[in-house]
Structures are given as structure tokens and as C-alpha cells.
Design a protein around this nucleic acid. Structure first.
Lengths: 110, 110
DNA sequence: TCAATTTGACGTATATTTGCGTCCAAATAA
DNA sequence: TTATTTGGACGCAAATATACGTCAAATTGA
């Protein structure tokens, strides 16, 4: 019997792991990076920036949207995307929280 | 220069995404956290700390070992595991590098 | 109105991850 | 020696992720 057992871990670890997973694909990192560098919404085909088909890119966009990291605004027949600064800040904080817990400054292997 | 800037850039994204992926499972986060909190090598059965079977935990340990984040030392019939502080520091730096690139301080959605 | 454009929804095929059972080698205890 | 403990190697099956083709709705221009 093979099942997903992730719900057996405590909430904090699950949340942290889930955020790492959202960021665990170069296409999604690239989209975030692009939107950040544009410092604005961009219209239309993000897929031209990536070595992937349009629908695949859309899939990644959808994941980022569902995670709340980006927002889409419909403008006529097009859609503008932009980062959600609040959520980005939140994620940074959550990840930072985990990483800072790995205190290796005085780590000793005994 | 053998590679174009674009290629180097993509390599960087792939590396960053790969590290996020290593951390994208609560079991692996838990293992790292446990080793960190123990502030030492621990001997033997980490699976008692996790809601997973021994072989499954071993699988996650193997991934962390292959990623270089932890080290195993054989002691007779047992194995001691400990964090690899250098690698942990390196990963922190790589992740920090990506996150700090998402500069939302003056982000404007135009 | 009608055709073209844009983009999301849906389905599908493939690849990868996850969880675990089984077996085996090495060290140790009896 | 033999039995036991420990943990890695291997392989299987289910779950999930990835990539993309197709289709339909909405908007816009002719």
C-alpha cells in the first residue's frame, strides 16, 4: 500500500516543505525572476522567455497563482501578471525561518 | 567563453531549483532539523523520529547524503549521521541569492 | 457579423517521486 | 561456529509532476 504520508508530519514542516516545492522547478523560478526584473506586470506570452510550450508555461503560472506568489489581471483579451509582494515577503520569511534553524555555527560532530 | 550568458543563467536556475527540490519534502527537513538540534552525529535509527518506515527514511537519508548535506560514518554495525556544515552554508547562500533577487521593496504593478 | 487573437480548461502520455517489502553483506553476540 | 542486529541495494506499485495537444470562451478589429 503506497500512500502519501505527508499529513503525518507537523504543520510547520509541511508548510515549509510545500513552499520549497513550489520553488523546485527552474521554469517557476524563471517566471518569478522575470516578473521581478520587469518590475511590473507583463502582458501575454511569458512562454517566449522559456524553453517550453505555451500551455506548459501556463501550467507553471497557474501553480504560482494558486500558491499566491503572482497575480493575474485581465485586460481585454490579454492578461497581465505581477508578483504579489506580500506573499513573496511571507515566503522569504518562512524559508529563512527554516534555514536559520539549521544552526551550524557551532556544529560539532561527536 | 565557452557558454553564452543565457546558458550560464539557465544553469544557475537549474542549480537553485535543484536545491529547492532537495528540501521539498517534510521528511528531509525533519532529518536536517533533527541532526541540527542534536548538535551532533546521531547513531542509528532515524526512522523512529519519523512517521515512515525504515527503508523510506533511508531513501531520504540517501538523497540528503548524495546532495552532500549530511555525512555518514560507519561505526561497527551502526552508522552515525551528521550535518555537513560547509554544504549547509553553501545551500543557504544559494537560496538566499535567489530570494534576494526577488526585490519587492519598490515593486510596482503597472 | 465574422475571423483572428489570447488564454484558460481539460485530457493524456511520460517521467519522476514516494513508500515500502525483500534480500544480502558486515559486524557483533552467543 | 551460528544467530542476531544493522543498514544498504534493489525492485515494485501508487502517487504526483511535467509537458503538451486540443478545444472553447472572451475580446477585438475588419
Amino acid at each position: 500500500m503506497v500512500q502519501s504520508k505527508t499529513d503525518l508530519f507537523d504543520e510547520e514542516l509541511k508548510t515549509q516543505a510545500a513552499w520549497f516545492k513550489v520553488l523546485a522547478h527552474p521554469a517557476r523560478l524563471k517566471i518569478l525572476q522575470y516578473l521581478s526584473e520587469a518590475n511590473s506586470c507583463i502582458t501575454g506570452d511569458l512562454s517566449e522567455e522559456l524553453p517550453l510550450g505555451r500551455t506548459t508555461v501556463n501550467q507553471h503560472i497557474k501553480e504560482l497563482k494558486e500558491a499566491g506568489l503572482i497575480q493575474g489581471h485581465i485586460e481585454g483579451v490579454r492578461t497581465k501578471y505581477c508578483l504579489n509582494p506580500e506573499k513573496i515577503t511571507e515566503v522569504k520569511s518562512i524559508i529563512e525561518q527554516f534555514l536559520s534553524g539549521l544552526n551550524v555555527g557551532d556544529y560539532e560532530c561527536k
